[in-house]
Nucleic acid binder design. Structure first.
Lengths: 347, 347
DNA sequence: TTGAAAGCGTTACCAG
DNA sequence: CTGGTAACGCTTTCAA
């Protein structure tokens, strides 16, 4: 009694397979009575339309690919994925995930084989720089390519990006306008391929350079190795500075949050002793009261997905390429500059 | 020149479509020279085997469903998903996600329509209680059903679960053995359907009851409303207690982390003034040095996926149902009980 | 409103 | 090792 096919359903309902098919996919073409009967029998026989067959017949795959740097478990990737999913799933699409597309081996394998060729209806590329050659390769699959936080729009049918550079420029400016002079930017080493992280660094540098003369700044980028312990590396680098800075500008909240907590253990309290600003507004940023630049990767995923749906549907996009700004979220880790006071007076 | 089909490739390569097909899926059956030529031409013509057609032909869908409570963005869900993905993707499967399967509307819709019927090769059910009727419904799709942290193994072909109750029993025992007497368990209200959260509460209660007489305990479960602000609710409930507890036992790290940080602002410092233990070992637990019970949802996802693959392959599982224990991770938020001292002596 | 039949792109059997 | 061909389960004209 298991796995009845469309013929059995048709027979049991006393109709043709055409009618069974229509009862599911174009119910309006079938009389209410027939349809009800068909659906009822189908349910009894555990029957349902096969997506594979539908896909084959229609030429669509009802599947989209999502390429990402690193793991889906990172905050940013999860949020973008969830945003895309929230649009694509109800529209009948599954997401085929390709993680770690930023490692040389995976890149080579992926772009060499192009396993998604003819097997997805659209491709999302989240947050990594694919080089011109790879964009070309991707285009050969002849489906819409949608970028999220890609460094360039070149070769993409649509993109959504936050302006990382401008966002970090704003963050830095905020610290400068609070009167801080000694500003450090702890930065984990750039990935092998340029990513949005680098744009942020540029934003910091540009803001400092622009304000340099007027504000007599002492600023620096403090580069630490990538890896799981990057925040601890930054911490120790910070502590080993001759003068502890009066402001710290962070690449991301995942850098800022551990710093706030652990610097506290070494007697450096924010906002009393220094200001610090993060980037992302990721979980726990509000818990520690972190002032930060907010971005909305979930929303970007939704935007990207909506564009993809239109593109799949052969519609033309009014604005294929969108840039959104990060928002300054003022909380409790920033304060106007105050001349440092002898430690024993602080009690 | 776009989207060549298998016939064009065959013609261009001077072979039959059978050979083209075999060159991709059973290369060992084709001579090296022929294969190389076919692959080369296929690449030139942007051709690749269609998964939809393969799926149709083979009767498999190369798709699995994953049902989850709430959103994929939660730490637990993301980890389980990533674990499943890490096994299923290389094996050629996509994951079709069904979120919020715990809300009445979604449940009704999902189990009524059973949209995955005949459309997935396996179903993963993560961390929610489906009632007996729903298990029955699910079984009607005639594919393996694998549970992750389901409250019962009934109706599942395989399950992996952590023993939430035992884990929390252990956590509670640890606090008791440190000499704490006044222990509070802040708990967000149970979801509409029973989940692993409830097991943890039971573990706490049982541990307290078991130790009650011998240790003269004063324990309580402090229930607060669910929702985004559950940690703040717990915080204020805690602060409004007549006597502040000397130990806090938390449902999960997401409760413990904000509490540690925010209680600090109100002058309650751990481990000086109270011990606190979390559950999960989620991100930032180590940053704040939280003593907690570790679970490994990523690993559970992998285990579940491996079971699924075997089941799909009609193999029998030696141990279909596995239970793993949470591990006590001792860090810095627990200490032996000390009689509270007058506040002014603490400076 | 319904039915018959062709065809979507594979795979697998059977020949050669 | 390679080719011909039927069949997988559906959708979609075209006719009735």
């Amino acid at each position: 009694m298991s796995k009845a096919d469309i013929y059995e359903v048709a027979k049991a309902a006393g109709v043709s397979i055409s009618t069974v098919s229509r009862s599911f996919t174009r119910p309006e073409l079938v009389s209410a009575k027939t349809r009800r009967k068909v659906l009822e029998i189908a349910d009894k026989l555990d029957f349902n339309i096969s997506r594979s067959a539908t896909a084959l017949k229609s030429g669509q795959t009802y599947r989209v690919a999502m390429l990402m740097n690193e793991e889906i478990t990172s905050w940013f990737n999860t949020q973008v994925f969830a945003g895309i999913e929230s649009i694509m799933h109800p529209a009948g699409y599954d997401i085929s995930l390709f993680q770690h597309i930023d490692t040389p081996e995976n890149r080579h394998e992926f772009f060499g084989e192009l396993p998604i060729r003819r097997n997805v209806d659209a491709v999302f590329v989240a947050s990594f720089a694919i080089d011109p050659h790879e964009v070309e390769q991707l285009q050969r699959i002849h489906v819409p390519i949608i970028g999220i936080n890609t460094p360039s729009t070149e070769g993409f049918d649509a993109t959504v990006s936050i302006d990382d550079e401008k966002g970090m420029y704003t963050a830095t400016q905020h610290l400068i306008s609070l009167g801080h002079h000694h500003i450090v930017y702890p930065s984990s080493e750039a990935a092998s391929i340029s990513s949005s992280i680098d744009s942020r660094t540029r934003g910091f540098i540009r803001a400092c350079e622009d304000a340099q003369e007027k504000h007599d700044l002492d600023w620096q980028v403090l580069t630490v190795p990538r890896g799981a312990a990057f925040a601890d590396s930054a911490l120790s680098a910070l502590l080993s500075l001759d003068d502890f800075p009066d402001a710290i500008c962070c690449q991301m909240d995942m850098m800022a949050i551990p710093l706030v907590i652990k610097l506290g253990r070494y007697g450096h309290l924010t906002p009393r002793d220094y200001s610090i600003i993060g980037f992302d507004d990721s979980p726990n940023a509000d818990t520690i009261n972190l002032t930060t630049m907010r971005q909305d990767p979930y929303g970007m995923g939704r935007t990207a997905a909506n564009k993809a749906l239109k593109l799949i549907n052969n519609e033309t996009l009014a604005t294929p390429h969108e840039i959104v700004d990060a928002q300054l979220v003022l909380r409790g880790t920033d304060a106007p500059y105050q001349r440092p006071q002898p430690a024993d007076l602080l009690q």
